[in-house]
């Protein structure tokens, strides 16, 4: 058997390089002085490094407020999505009733409904309710997630049924079956899914763009737009510093739970 061909590492390293280079340039530019930005744009190592860009960002925008806005929305959406997904996955796996499969596939179908088809009525609804420029307006339409239902249903199905049946015979209630038996067994998937929801909501741009035009309600991704709108004299160092700050929480969350996140995708059977 032919094994281990080191040569094949070469294309993989090229892909890694392509993935990382833009990030390296973002980091480098964030720590450069304006002179370094323009005269040494190819140099990935700012020397001497300056923190002036970060100081500028903190002065130019209410950074703390934006972090808080982004965090609150991401937290509400993540908690709500986990809750509705857990309940739905429980409903789809622990009971059999007529139309169950149809209903499940209808849920899955929502993944394929493009955002453009739903954005206008949802915008009008929020506007009529007076929820523009509110957390409610951004968070409410995203409180259920078909992918979450799908993944958790998949995880619950992989638990040996004997575990749940034993609990049933002991006349244990639904709440305790869920809380004491099922949830502990699918903890890795829950963590991965929670992190994924959080990262995705943190990063969101399109829907908050429609919901929010009051600058004090901006999320971090929306705030980045303020740095591109300065025609002409764009402060590149500050822009990259702001991009770095906006990326920090998702990157840290990912690095802390990298194993869970990637493994959930590898093993959950997100295939077919």
């Amino acid at each position: 058997m032919k094994t281990k061909i080191p040569w094949w590492h070469f294309p993989l390293l090229l892909v890694v390089l392509g993935s990382l280079l833009p990030l390296i340039w973002m980091l480098a530019t964030a720590w450069k002085t304006p002179e370094q930005v323009f005269n040494a744009s190819l140099n990935p190592w700012p020397y001497p490094a300056t923190a002036a860009n970060f100081a500028y960002v903190m002065g130019a925008i209410p950074l703390g407020r934006y972090i808080l806005n982004t965090f609150i929305i991401a937290f509400i959406v993540t908690a709500a999505k986990l809750l509705t997904s857990i309940l739905a996955a429980y409903g789809f796996t622990q009971f059999s009733f007529r139309g169950r499969e149809t209903l499940f596939y209808l849920c899955l179908l929502s993944i394929f409904v493009p955002f453009t088809v739903t954005m206008m009525p949802n915008y009008l609804f929020m506007s009529r309710m007076g929820w523009l420029n509110t957390y409610t307006g951004v968070a409410l339409p995203q409180m259920a997630d078909a992918l979450g239902i799908f993944l958790l249903r998949q995880s619950i199905r992989s638990i040996p049924p004997s575990l749940v049946e034993a609990a049933r015979l002991d006349r244990v209630g639904h709440g305790r079956i869920l809380g004491r038996v099922l949830l502990p067994a699918i903890k890795p998937s829950l963590i991965a899914l929670g992190i994924l929801f959080f990262i995705n909501t943190w990063n969101e741009y399109f829907w908050p763009l429609l919901m929010i035009n009051d600058k004090s309600m901006y999320t971090l991704p929306l705030a980045l737009q303020m740095f591109t709108n300065l025609e002409g004299g764009t402060n590149w160092g500050a822009m990259m510093a702001a991009a770095t700050l906006a990326s920090l929480p998702p990157v840290v969350a990912y690095l802390l739970a990298q194993r869970y996140v990637v493994d959930t995708f590898i093993h959950s059977g997100l295939k077919g």
Binding site: P22, L23, Q225, A246, S247, P250, Y254, V262
Partner: peptide
Amino acid sequence: LIFLPSVLSLAV
């Protein structure tokens, strides 16, 4: 490392 960019915002 290859997964890393997908945790960033499109705005970033």
